[in-house]
Structure formats: C-alpha cells, structure tokens
Design a protein around this nucleic acid. Structure first.
Lengths: 143, 143
DNA sequence: GTATATGCAAAACTTTTGCATCCTT
DNA sequence: AAGGATGCAAAAGTTTTGCATATAC
C-alpha cells in the first residue's frame, strides 16, 4: 500500500496505470526511458497506452517522485527520486549507469555559483567512459 | 581561407554549405541548435537544406570541429570546439549559456574516476538556475 | 571525370495533444 | 455523480535516410 499512499500524498489519484508504472520504476531501480517503461507494461500484459506513460512520467516528475535526465543521445530517462542528490557515470561499452556523490565537488560547485552570482536550482555532472568491469575483463561491473 | 583549410585538414571537402555553416557557428560564438543554424542560412538567403545542416553538423562533430551538447530539454546544441574544455551554467530565465572552468573540480573528477576505476572519455557539468543579471534587475547579464 | 555532397521528400523516433470514454473518489 | 485519468489516433518536433542531381577536386 505504500505506493498508493505515495501517489495520494503527491496529490495524484491511485489509478492502475500509475501504480503499475511506479512499481516498474522501483523494480528496475535504474534508469528507464519512456519506451522502456512501455515495453515493460506490454510484456506484463498491461493495457496501458504510451501516451499515458508519458503523461504519468511527467506528473511523477512534477510531483518530485522521479528525476528526469537527458543523457547524451537524446531521449530522456527516469529514475526514482530517493531524495539524495548524486551524479552519474555512464559506461559507453555496457551502457550501465553508475551513481556517485562527492561532497568536495558539491561544495566547490556551491562556491563557484556564489562567485558568479548564479543561483543554482539544479545541477548535473556526467562522466562518459568505460567502467572498471568492461575495462578489465569485458564484463560489466554490475551483472 | 582559414575555414577552407580547417575543412581540408578535417578531411572534408570545402563545399559552400559547409563553409557557410562553419561561418555561422563561428559568428554566433554561442550554442546553436540545428534549427538555429538552418534559420540563419535561410535569413542569409542561402539555399541549404535542413538535412544538410544535420549531416554537416554531425560530420563536424566527428571531425572534432564542434562539440554537441544535450542540455535538459531535448534538442541538441552545438558550439565550436576551441580545444579548451569548460562546463556550463544555463540561465532558466534568459536561456543564456555561460561557460566556466575550474581546475579544482577537474582534478577532483580525475581522482574520483581513478578511485572507481572508471576511464573518462568525456565529462559534462551543468548548472541550471538564474544568472546574476536576471536575479538583480531582470536583465540578462550578457546583452 | 569521379566520387562525394546536396536538396528534396519521405520516414523514423520521441513526445504532446484532442477527444470520447472510463475509473477513482 | 463528477472530475480527473485513460486509450486511441492524430499531430508536432527533431533527426535520419533514399535517391537523383549537382559540385569539388
């Protein structure tokens, strides 16, 4: 029932499509595009339209349940918002996304913004490269 | 003739569309989308197709003449590659893009990657927020 | 002259929107 | 019952591609 309450708290009706999409995102843990979510729904035999997926993802993002990213490559991906900011490393070989957080950089980012008089609302940092697993033995570090 | 040679050096024929597009990007200095480049061409009375703009921008990127960014919001923007890496601050009020560079962060980024065994090929850092001009007097800091 | 580049139109993708119908509250 | 949510289809935006023609070298 947690999911249901999450939705209520966000001011959204607990409809079937919304619950399903939320559960898919939680299950996946990772970073999914709208089409990935849609594919999951279809595979699960759910009768949910792609348009609804987009609408729901947008609503979830506005409600703060999700975070949307635009990695290099165009299409958007979503991940659950677990409250703690983090940055991303994307492996160009295995396409996996790794998260990290570094307080030293966060602090320096705040200082830089202050110096320039820029008021940061959000910030992103992405590394694109090869993860340790793919580098060492051609096997993804995560599977 | 510099442009012409730039293209030759990059292994690209110095065609009229390519020279025009290169000059537009240099002129603009800033960050243009494919459609912006196309609009510039039309306004200049040049008879260049949008498809060519995309093809040329892709080739320029592959040749290292340009850098392509995917800022939040979807469409790609391009800027000349002047060789020195920098990060970006995007003002959500005036839509201007400001560049900055901080060696302290760059160093820390290298350290983090090393710690994790991640081999960085590229990296980006974006701040989204309000620039000092828009904050202070509702006027962009740059015009 | 030959291979490459271009313009146009059509296609592929991703995301958004209009509208009648359905579902949650 | 009433308003918001959904599915479908159509549209809008961006980027890619096929192909005949034009252009650079």
């Amino acid at each position: 029932m947690t999911d249901k309450n999450d939705l209520k708290k966000a001011g959204l009706k607990a409809t079937l499509p919304r619950l399903k999409i939320l559960s898919i995102l939680e299950m996946a843990g990772g970073h999914l595009g709208a089409d990935d979510v849609f594919k999951n729904l279809v595979e699960a035999g759910e009768d949910v339209g792609l348009a609804t997926v987009y609408r729901v993802l947008t609503q979830f993002e506005e409600a703060g349940l999700l975070i949307r990213h635009n990695f290099e490559g165009g299409r958007s991906v979503y991940e659950m918002n677990h409250g703690h900011h983090h940055d991303h490393m994307l492996c160009v070989k295995c396409s996996k996304v790794f998260e990290f957080y570094d307080e030293q950089i966060e602090q320096r980012q705040r200082d830089i913004a202050k110096e320039k008089g820029f008021v940061i609302e959000e910030h992103t940092m992405h590394f694109y490269g090869v993860c340790v697993g793919m580098k060492k033995n051609g096997k993804c570090s995560e599977e």
